[in-house]
Write a protein that binds this DNA or RNA. Structure first.
Lengths: 209, 209
DNA sequence: CAAAAATCGTGAGTAAATTCACAAAGTTAG
DNA sequence: CTAACTTTGTGAATTTACTCACGATTTTTG
């Protein structure tokens, strides 16, 4: 296990957000930043930010704040920003295409290197610089990519998941409404767009602010 | 305030998920279901499911489980499944288009009724049955929709947010990387696709399962 | 240089969510 | 009908996350 394995999951989820914002400050030439300023920008309580940072040691200076350059290089290291994670995308529909176009606008430690689709017409095309392969060739063309984005129709989700796992994938970002079943050593993050929208509607009706 | 306002937020977020799954069971003609079966399907601990349901009273029967028909009609009522929330979508790029196409595949208490884009070429077209208006006409064409999906470039996010709020929008589903600033009575749910991907990569490296 | 202001890092308190584990009550099988 | 089994609903324990509030330290101002 990592030494860092003590970091709360909630904190870990915020790290990429912090990194992106701090990197912007750095590119703008800003020298220092306080937890209060960060808080206004990323909408996370300033005490939470200080606590989050404190898991990595004393990154700041009392009465001063945080040195932007120091923070940026620290986060780059911590988030393995130099070591890119290669990603495969399965399902080049609208959502999949959005990801592919997004791919190169980054601050990113992840890169989609190959995409698959069931439509033979699309094979051989490129979207956002990523070649599209046919889903039947998944096993031959996937290489040893370890993360996959699943943007296929939900009926196809479990079948493709099984094939991905057969290829050694260890992380899946699942955008289908289907809840997929995976071995216990495979991590799945699930984003259900229609649930997000419905839950927002429910909150508006039942939890007035 | 609602009577139901006691329901934990974490529970409220799971309700749409439960509803969708239970509705599928109902359509398949299944008569009964246990918390254990639901748990396997939606990947939520069975005790959590029983606890969630218990906030609404005793919906189940000991030794038997839950009656599917009863559950389905209960959830339909609770989620205001009959009273549809009208939604506006801003930014008809790939991601926006994905939402529009998704719109009618539903079990849904939400419906996108109008979309806006900055591209004049697209005005007058329909995507997924939803008419596209020009962003300059936002104020005239939005009607009294109270929820908006924001799928625009991040530079445009805050400006459009301000205009939406001027029109009385009270909930925003923000897909841009920008953290938007809103009055305290407006609810924002933020989904940051690149953060999701990066955070999955981080978890894989640092939190081996 | 001294006083005032800023800001971190964190102990302690609180809140929210999850999970365990079991009595109670129903169902099923023989 | 009885015994074995199933499954709920929930009190209590635990885990996780958030926030307050303040001492310690540095910067800034005059």
């Amino acid at each position: 296990m990592d030494e860092e394995a003590k970091i709360p999951q909630a904190t870990a989820k915020r790290l990429p957000l912090y990194y992106r914002f701090i990197n912007n400050l750095y590119l703008q030439g800003k020298m220092r930043v306080s937890s209060k300023e960060l808080s206004d920008a990323v909408k996370v309580d300033s005490a939470t930010i200080r606590r989050d940072f404190s898991y990595f040691g004393a990154l700041g200076k009392k009465g001063y704040g945080y040195n932007v350059e120091h923070l940026v290089s620290f986060f780059r290291k911590t988030l393995d920003q130099d070591e890119t994670t290669e990603v495969a995308l399965i399902g080049v529909g609208n959502l999949g295409t959005a990801f592919l176009n997004y791919n190169f606008m980054k601050n990113n430690n992840t890169k989609i290197v190959v995409a698959f689709d069931a439509d033979k017409e699309r094979v051989g095309q490129e979207v956002g610089g990523v070649p599209i392969e046919h889903i039947d060739d998944l096993e031959e063309r996937m290489g040893n990519v370890s993360v996959a984005i699943l943007t296929v129709p939900s009926q196809a989700a479990q079948g493709i998941t099984d094939r991905l796992i057969g290829q050694g994938v260890s992380g899946i970002l699942n955008f289908t409404p289907a809840r997929i079943t995976v071995p216990s050593d495979v991590r799945v993050h699930h984003i259900d767009l229609s649930v997000e929208l419905q839950s927002l509607a429910y909150f508006l009706k039942h939890y007035p602010l």
